[in-house]
């Protein structure tokens, strides 16, 4: 399959979303965002919470960074500063979201609040913005790409959380409990995701 980026707008958005979420899964195919995943994936609830926060931030920062890159950095000829600019935008966005949630919804803040500092250091989010600018996207497509990448991360961490809940840790050798056994689980899952590779090409 080769998404025709000039063709039917909806089909191209859907393909971009699917490729970012499945074939190019940012956690299991590109191995970004592993550290917070290892730390948080003990329970499905926490995994889904962090995954949703990451999806939200990835989607919007991809779109914001797209606008800043196309309409500010390129016209000013300072594209070489993009790394710093992207990092600051992501961190500032996380900060804003944290403050907004804190004021708007006490309940949401309690469930998502603890994850927000973790997001700033999640390399999956910066990675998504950097991949996005290497592809010939328009604003909507960048948005779909960010949403797909974040959603893919959400799927992966939820699956890992589910498997970890089912693992009986008493049967695992002491030194291998926690991160050790999780690494093995992720290794096996990433082998499974290899079969998706190359199904959608740009």
């Amino acid at each position: 399959m080769n998404p025709d980026l000039q063709g039917s707008p909806f089909a191209s958005l859907l393909l971009i979303f699917l490729s970012a979420a499945l074939t190019d899964n940012i956690l299991l195919a590109r191995f970004l965002g592993l550290c917070p995943c290892l730390g948080v994936s003990k329970k499905v609830d926490a995994s889904v919470g962090l995954g949703m926060a990451v999806t939200f931030v990835t989607t919007f920062t991809a779109a914001i960074n797209y606008l800043v890159y196309e309409y500010l950095l390129i016209p000013l000829d300072i594209a070489y500063l993009r790394l710093i600019v992207f990092i600051v935008i992501i961190a500032a966005f996380v900060q804003l979201v944290e403050m907004a949630i804190e004021r708007l919804s006490e309940k949401l803040y309690q469930s998502l609040g603890i994850f927000l500092p973790l997001i700033t250091v999640n390399c999956a989010i910066l990675g998504t913005s950097l991949f996005m600018i290497t592809r010939p996207f328009n604003l909507l497509q960048a948005f779909a790409f960010g949403f797909g990448a974040g959603f893919g991360w959400l799927i992966a961490i939820t699956l890992i959380g589910g498997i970890r809940e089912k693992i009986n840790e008493d049967a695992v050798p002491a030194g291998l409990r926690g991160p050790g056994i999780t690494l093995i689980v992720i290794g096996i899952m990433s082998l499974a995701f290899v079969v998706f590779s190359g199904m959608i090409q740009f």
Partner: peptide, 21 residues
Amino acid sequence: MPPGAFFMLAIVTWFARSQLD
């Protein structure tokens, strides 16, 4: 491939942690 690194990393973690304990 990367999965090989996952498995090796798990083994190193296992070894180091049990030694330390």
